[in-house]
Design a protein around this nucleic acid. Structure first.
Lengths: 341, 341
DNA sequence: TTAATAAATTAAATCGATTTAAAAGGTGAT
DNA sequence: ATCACCTTTTAAATCGATTTAATTTATTAA
């Protein structure tokens, strides 16, 4: 039933149909140059043999892989556990499935130049394009990738108009959260920022400052604390604040996980949310509304980000000219119980 | 600097080094047949041109892709949002990265025969092997895949010894949870099962029954309720029980998400956990200990599952003979606050 | 019937690597 | 100088498809 190692190849179909491999290729591609009767003949032979084209062979010739890579730069792998990642993946796979594309998931533990996820996947030609999840600023591997002209969609803010991006208005999101707390009369608002070597963290901090400025409330720098975006960081952040007896009446956490960790510790210390401390998060993960009190948070369209990024990349790959470089998604403050008022 | 479309190919290296492509291939493979001085020469030329072999060409010839696929059968894509998936992915990518393998993520929305994730990825030859996340029983596409002899590691229980599996002792896990509740004196224990067309759901139900049997407590079939494994299912499950005024004093949820949803609804109805109702979950997701009360649950080693599955598959691909067909991971009851006692 | 033209098919090159078998180059013994 | 043998290099086939250019077959016009 097959030629070589046990798989049905085009040659097998050609032999059964009594035509040449070239005809098979054209016929299956429904090329009008092939007689309609021959086309039918070939299709029947292909069906009978359950022929599925070998994508590797096809890729080599066409210089296309019908695959895109999602690159997550040198990470502690915990990203996977972040709900953002799951939703992003949902969106991406939905679009890719609709368009018959495959998804290669690429991570690198080290920042190793040679073996960086960028070098590996891209120059390998294993994917036609990449979606790059927000990298730390000034990663030179990433910059090299951009320079190389390889199709990239970057998830996050980018200063100039060189590359395709899907971003959130983090400044505005953080502004709305902080502004809401200020309007509620809170004046000592702690902000747990995410890592400040990522633009996300910087932008949210900027929004926090902006809200203070507009409400003519000075920022107490002691209340701005850099943390990583984990539950634990939130938990420990509150521990430290309480132990150091720093007074505060609200917390704007860099993301929901931190907010959840913080609320946990506040609860354990017998501090009432929102009566004593108002808490606001960022992301609006599914769990946000499962806690008691339910978490007020800045909603960001995570799945939509994945959808748009994938559509954008496919658009670029298909040579469409009408693709805008920058897509900015708006956030929305979801007011629930954790901030009171 | 390059031959065709802008990428450095082996021919380019050969030209620069003044040797034939064949020599380049052998030299870079460090074949002793090539003179040591030539090898050095070639390596230098390759470095100078920043040559990276085209994996597609290599794959076509070697019939290997250095890629494995994680197949998630016809799913509502919500799987991604389940913490189990994230941890699994962590484990898998860790092993793959160590071994220079790529990961292809493959899902299918439909059960469509032709386009099933199995057909697509496997017969395409885009991956050397697959890890299949627990499928619904009797999926004929899956059975066909197994028959084809394609390297497969299946995540979940399998009746015979035909295929490589990594499984949990779900029966035992569910037993320990239920037994614990019974030992606490609970007699009307609700069980929200997961979908019963999956072996997981069946096994956990079996453990639930077994515990009753051993404790000589009859099972009230009205308390066994089939639900999907979501937060919402747990929430609504409790709503229905309360609305139908079915008395119960404990709940063993098929997973933590359901338990969390259930606790949410109990809280809203003013029913105290664990004083009035004891709750136990299954999985031990990170969030389990963030709730109040903290969730008693059956721990399963999710990341370890990924690690073992990946190691097993790579072992099979490398032709190792000492790989055991079946690996069964043990669970562990984590006693926290939600069940009292 | 033959020439000109159109339609259908196929041989062969190509994509980028690997690998086998053949060729070329060296060395030492006789 | 010749032969045998070993080392090194390379030509050519191969993997499985696509596509161009050439060939074969069919159709129409004269």
């Amino acid at each position: 039933m097959s030629s070589g190692n046990g798989h049905t190849t085009m040659k097998d179909v050609a032999r059964l149909a009594g035509v040449s491999p070239a005809t098979v290729s054209l016929a299956l591609g429904n090329d009008p140059r092939v007689n309609i009767k021959t086309r039918k003949l070939v299709r029947e032979a292909a069906d009978k043999l359950r022929y599925i084209p070998n994508e590797i062979g096809r890729s080599l010739r066409s210089q296309k892989t019908e695959t895109i890579a999602l690159v997550i730069p040198h990470t502690s792998q915990h990203v996977f556990s972040h709900p953002y990642f799951a939703k992003l993946l949902e969106g991406i796979t939905e679009v890719l499935n609709e368009n018959g594309y495959n998804l290669l998931l690429s991570t690198t533990a080290e920042e190793n130049d040679e073996q960086s996820a960028y070098e590996k996947v891209l120059r390998n030609r294993r994917a036609d394009g990449v979606i790059v999840s927000s990298a730390s600023l000034f990663d030179r591997n990433f910059l090299r990738l951009v320079d190389s002209g390889f199709p990239v969609v970057y998830l996050g803010p980018w200063t100039n108009n060189d590359i395709y991006t899907v971003e959130r208005d983090d400044v505005m999101g953080a502004f709305s959260a902080t502004d809401h707390l200020l309007k509620l009369g809170r004046r000592k608002i702690v902000h747990f920022t995410g890592p400040l070597n990522h633009q996300v963290g910087r932008d949210r901090l900027e929004g926090y400052r902006l809200a203070h400025q507009q409400n003519q409330v000075p920022v107490n720098e002691e209340l701005v604390i850099e943390k990583d975006l984990s539950v634990n960081a939130g938990y420990e952040g509150v521990t430290e604040l309480l132990d150091r007896q720093i007074p505060f009446d609200a917390l704007f956490a860099g993301n929901d996980l931190m907010a959840i960790g913080a609320m946990k510790q506040l609860l354990e210390r017998g501090i009432k949310v929102p009566e004593q401390i108002s808490v606001v998060g960022f992301d609006d993960i599914d769990m946000a509304s499962m806690f008691h009190p339910t978490l007020t948070t800045v909603h960001q369209p995570m799945k939509q980000t994945g959808i748009l990024a994938a559509q954008k990349l496919l658009g670029v790959l298909n040579g469409r000219e009408d693709i805008e470089k920058k897509t900015v998604l708006q956030t929305k403050l979801m007011i629930r119980e954790s901030c009171g008022g």
